[in-house]
Nucleic acid binder design. Structure first.
Length: 287
DNA sequence: TTGTGTTTTATTGCCTCC
DNA sequence: GGAGGCAATAAAACACAA
């Protein structure tokens, strides 16, 4: 097999590949990727810089160096980029016009747009990935802080329950559940300050879906009822309050920069946490 | 200079749409 | 069935460190 010269494909505007001759003398065309095609298949192909008559011109073979893949000039690229910015798809008319303007084959313009779209898509995927990752990181950090806060609250609750139990055993507090105003002074202090502070804290910190008590939910501060009691009596209400609190934040339409995903993520996590908590402490789990 | 990684240009094959 | 788009890929051109 003899090696030949490189060809230009007028149907594609591309060049590259070699004219080869088989042992029996049959000419074949080998594309840049090494794939073979018959002369019939490549009948539409012509040399890059020459007319079809030059195909078998020995002088041509000697004089012409193998055609190299050429990069577009910065001016050509600039114009193509501008055109791509305007519209990333190429209608036949625009392709022809651009090709004329740039001194390129229409097929080259089409290929450039094709590759440009592929590059854009890759970049877009990278951007999407970055966005998702930062959103995930933010959600993850929020979730961690909520867990910590939950642990802290659980230990506070446990501590208070122990105090309450001690008082009951000492006969200071008549069991079972009492209205806050009937509690002894220190219990009023504990319940009235710590819990109201807690509620305010949670409502003001803006810690995502961590607002345990909704404004419309049962609250010690406003109603005078124990939040514990309300939860014991109306556990579903407490849960609704939780959901309401989360929902209200979602509904207000405010974008605090971390609500790319539905806050249901938080709500679900919180419900899970509460279920576990309820089991652990033996209250507010509805039979 | 050379090896290596990245970018750009181009091809191939498959798919969809008209 | 032809045109055009896309994914996968090849290969030349380029960049850059050792």
């Amino acid at each position: 097999m003899e090696s030949g010269r490189l060809f230009f494909d007028p149907t594609s505007g591309c060049h590259g590949g070699n004219m080869l001759f088989l042992g029996n003398g049959d000419p074949v065309f080998r594309g840049p990727t090494g794939s073979m095609m018959s002369m019939e298949e490549s009948s539409k192909r012509r040399p890059f810089f020459s007319s079809p008559e030059d195909l078998y011109d020995e002088e041509y073979y000697d004089e012409q160096l193998p055609e190299k893949k050429r990069r577009l000039t910065p001016e050509q690229v600039h114009l193509l980029e501008k055109s791509f910015e305007a519209e990333n798809k190429l209608e036949p008319d625009r392709k022809t016009q651009l090709a004329k303007k740039l001194g390129l084959q229409p097929r080259q313009v089409a290929v450039w747009f094709q590759n440009r779209r592929a590059r854009w898509k890759t970049k877009q995927l990278e951007r999407d990935y970055d966005l998702l990752k930062s959103t995930y990181d933010s959600l993850s950090a929020n979730y961690d802080s909520i867990l910590k806060e939950n642990d802290k609250l659980k230990s506070e609750v446990a501590s208070l329950m122990e105090k309450l139990k001690a008082k009951e055993e000492a006969g200071v507090v008549p069991p079972p559940v009492q209205k806050p105003e009937t509690l002894p002074g220190d219990m009023n202090e504990i319940m009235g300050t710590q819990f109201s502070v807690k509620v305010e804290d949670r409502l003001s910190t803006g810690s995502g879906g961590s607002a345990v008590v909704d404004e419309e939910g049962p609250q010690l501060v406003d109603s005078g009822d124990s939040y514990f009691q309300s939860c014991v009596q109306y556990p579903a209400g407490c849960m609704a309050a939780v959901d309401g609190g989360v929902q209200s934040e979602e509904d207000d339409g405010s974008d605090d920069g971390r609500s790319y995903f539905s806050v249901d993520v938080f709500a679900a996590a919180e419900r899970q946490q509460q279920a576990e908590e309820g089991e652990a402490l033996g209250w507010w789990v509805w039979p």
